[in-house]
Design a binder for these strands. Structure first.
Lengths: 213, 213
DNA sequence: CGATTGAACAGTTTATATATTAGTCAGGCT
DNA sequence: AGCCTGACTAATATATAAACTGTTCAATCG
């Protein structure tokens, strides 16, 4: 709930801006228009946000909060094994990203514009989702289905392996069903990797390094 | 060797164009300049190439030929197991892509411009490399280290899993060493997945589907 | 007569002028 | 006082004109 910290007026500004960002795009909405929507002067906006880009950043922060909360439901799903939750996590993440960006050029534009100027926001987003994924992995460690000693490292590896299915730039090329099927293929292989490591608990860095070069 | 099919004059044009593409960029080199380099009129270029874009396409085709030949050396490396060759393949592919695009905006521009208008070229490139990777997998099947029944499907899955490390758009953000280390992490996990499947030869589509949903 | 040219055309890029907008701040309002 | 306004400015974006470039093809060359 990132909006909790915000003033009532700030929240009103954010709501007006969000509506226009999604409908007309980031570049085409002006500060004056946002101000008019809130029945205030454009100058007054700067008492609540340092710049237009910061409004966009807050918008994305809210979106991220919702998405992370959405992904977190995977954790609480009853009757699902950790392995199934890993799959659920990435399929849901893919679905959310696909639905947001496919046939929604405005959302893509806002995202691109923000990430270009504030790369840190993208990193924070990835880390926030990574924490959820890490909890799934920890759960698998606890019930013995996984055997992961460096959870953050494996989290990163999984995010890398699924990158193709979370990078919006590629979405326009391929159909959702096809991509989902390919994502399942990657998850299958990765989970088998976990199964192998779980059966050979002596893996660790030594074994991994040994198999290399 | 894609240039073998070409006329001597066509090869001269291609060489002149390639030099300018890499030095000044695709958009900034004009047909007149290429023609001047070859001591001919601009109109005469069209007796050898239908358009400027086709010169760029041929340039990329040559590049692809070299890259695939380069990757193919991985296959013939003596004393390497198939698993090691899978790693070699992707590390080499990453290194080649990184070196080509990092700090070489011109190569990136040419690639982007071409892929935008001729997406098929990118697909053909991926397929050509996939064939080499498929041969490595087949080798692993032959010596028993892998147990892959649908080699093309697994090839695609591997390419998807390594996408993060072959997509030039991301290269400018992260340092080569870090990316290579992360790629190794993905390969580790994927190879463990192969090991698991090799140890449980009854995997196949039924088992994979069963583990899902 | 086939091979080549370069002027001509249509489309695009660049350069320039005009207009809009993000952000500031001295003052007005409550 | 504290909150808000709206004219102002520097910077960005849009619109318009000029220049250039990819491509064609009738005329020329060998």
């Amino acid at each position: 709930m990132p909006t909790t910290n915000l003033d009532e007026t700030a929240r009103q500004i954010l709501a007006a801006a969000s509506r226009r960002f999604l409908h007309y795009g980031y570049k085409k909405t002006t500060m004056s228009e946002i101000a008019d929507d809130c029945n205030m002067s454009s100058g007054n906006l700067y008492r609540y946000f340092p710049s237009k880009l910061d409004i966009a950043e807050m918008f994305v922060r809210v979106l991220r909060g919702e998405q992370v909360a959405n992904l977190r439901t995977v954790l609480d799903a009853p009757g699902r094994t950790p392995a199934q939750k890993v799959r659920d996590f990435f399929l849901l993440k893919f679905k959310l990203a696909y639905e947001r960006f496919h046939d929604n050029a405005k959302a893509f534009e806002l995202s691109s514009a923000l990430i270009l100027e504030r790369p840190k926001v993208a990193l924070e987003w990835e880390n926030a989702e990574g924490r959820v994924l890490g909890e799934i992995l920890a759960e698998g460690n606890a019930d013995g289905s996984f055997a992961i000693d460096d959870v953050p490292a494996i989290t990163k590896i999984l995010q890398n392996a699924a990158y193709r299915f979370t990078s919006p730039a590629v979405f326009h090329e391929t159909d959702e069903e096809v991509l989902a099927a390919e994502l399942n293929g990657v998850i299958d292989l990765v989970l088998d990797g976990f199964a192998w490591r779980s059966a050979h608990r002596d893996h660790g860095k030594a074994a991994a390094a040994g198999s290399r070069s």
